[in-house]
Design a protein around this nucleic acid. Structure first.
Lengths: 130, 130
DNA sequence: CCGCATCCATTTTGATACTG
DNA sequence: CAGTATCAAAATGGATGCGG
């Protein structure tokens, strides 16, 4: 054991991969919305706001795949599907909230930095991914 | 910006926007690499590994714009440019590390959930497009 | 050594329409 | 109501060559 190969750090790759879920446009918002009560598809769609049906489906699938969310189907008419955070999902919610707090606390700081930067360069917002 | 006709939760929008910096493919890695010592461009490039010059430039610019990183130029020959985390950058590093810990702790859990999900659906990895 | 610009491929997202 | 399919647009990432 202990493959001393200097190969790629397995952990880093995985971490990055998992982080990318947090980084995508909607996952975090969905998780947060699911934080209190379980919700139904269109309920979630309303609450998140601005998300397309397609993206909500995709996001939910991804979350479900990672074991962060469970899907419960009630065979009623009309169909009712409820999404709920798993324990794992809840633990992520906590961590994500920390990040959210950081973002809120430093929002002004960052916005100010951006404004100054943009002003100094003359360019409009043309920076990286954000 | 700031569409005044809809009272979108200002915080959420901003938080999401800031989170997207954390979510992109490289920012986190660069921040982590800059965590200990300030580094030079190509030094950083080597340490991150797999990042293209373009992406490193873009990432660094974005980080600089947000006030997370500072760029210091030494007018020597050949030119020497050093990147260093700001205080704000350091505080982000801490938060990010928490998320990283979460990812590492739950890596197996998630990987297992994925495996099960993929098996159950028969589909290969075709879930959410992160 | 630093890093910008251009071209190109892949990935991601959104609009719309349709099914159970 | 919940979910899928298709299509086109946009953002993102990478390779390469040029200039300070």
């Amino acid at each position: 054991m202990t493959p001393s190969h200097i190969h790629v750090p397995t952990d880093c790759r995985t971490v990055t991969e998992i982080l990318s879920r947090v980084g995508d446009k909607w996952s975090v918002q969905v998780v947060v919305q699911l934080g209190g009560e379980p919700k139904r598809f269109n309920e979630l769609r309303r609450d998140v706001g601005g998300i397309s049906q397609r993206m909500l489906t995709l996001t939910l699938r991804g979350l479900e795949r990672d074991g962060l969310v469970t899907r419960k189907i009630y065979p009623t008419i009309p169909p009712r599907v409820e999404y709920r955070l798993t324990e794992l999902g809840c633990s992520l919610l906590n961590t994500v909230r920390a990040l959210g707090s950081w973002a809120i606390e430093n929002r002004d700081h960052i916005l100010e930095a951006r404004r100054r930067f943009d002003e100094a360069t003359g360019h409009g917002p043309g920076a990286d991914g954000a």
